[in-house]
Amino acid sequence: MAEPVLSIRNLSVEIPTRHGILKPVDGVTYDIAAGEILGIVGESGAGKSMAGNAVIGLLSPPAHVSAGEIWLNGERIDNLKGDAMRRLRGKEIGMVFQDPLTSLNPLLRIGDQLVETMLTHLPISKSEAEKRAVAALEEVGIPGAAKRVNSYPHEFSGGMRQRVVIALALCAEPSLVIADEPTTALDVSVQAQIIALLKRLCRERGTAVMLITHDMGVIAEAADRVAVMYAGRLAELGPVRDVITAPEHPYTHGLMASTPLASRGKSRLHQIPGAMPRLDAVPDGCAFNPRCPRVADRCRQAPAPTVDGNAAACWFPLQHEEAS
């Protein structure tokens, strides 16, 4: 298998606070190959976005990478400083944020925002960048792109703005795109279009995508593989179909059972008892043990085995008759 675009090895992020050190990301390992879409799911505070911010080097202090390695195209990037990291942002790693209404500078024309990004990273002239800006807008499906480059962000709807944001993230042809909840702030009717667009563009260009979301529907629609996060740790990693139809980790199982499906009829939705622990009160052993229906003494003492490759981080994974 070819070398992955992004490789995260045993990554931990720490936030020192007055009440001790918080670990929003704790020993996470995964790879993303070229052209692959890896979905990262989990509840709020599970560490999904924090891992994404660590990759692009935008953790807000005092949060910092405390252990592990991040490799991009065979180069280690977690120890890059200031300007060296800045050069990678936008050029090698593109990012799409959650809220398109606030991600664009309201005072600058969208064309200017595209041009400045390209001129920062690519050795091209201004007129060439202007031409490419129109092409980039056409590619994300903005009608009348030649005219619309001169528009300001407030002249676009939410969905259209997210298309502009995607054009901005992709305009310097990065090898990795981190999409942090790209559809959460959008109308349901627009969500599917945006996901389809992101998927198509990345497939065409062979871009690796880290798709962070809490929406299993989005994952099922777009991702190739999925990583389930719980309290900063990886709970389960595997191909989307396997994880959805035959989850091995009790948490993933509970998560799937609590996702409403039309096929399941009008039955009551499943609930996982309790709530995800706060970061300053993660229990010993497996983080999920207080809520787990399959809990045993071992789970309270030893941390669950770490996920490497396709597996669940669980001492007693659910067994399924049909092999996955």
């Binding site: 935008l58 800045r86 936008g90 990012m95 944020f97 500078n105 400045e116 990004t117 944001v165």
Partner: peptide, 26 residues
């Protein structure tokens, strides 16, 4: 603190551009 400043940084713009082109005007 605004999102568009974070986004400008995520696009790898130089600090000078982030501060004076994006932040100061706003």
């Amino acid at each position: 603190r605004q999102d568009y400043i974070r986004f400008a940084r995520a696009r790898g713009l130089r600090n000078r551009a982030v501060h004076f082109r994006h932040a100061l005007k706003n």
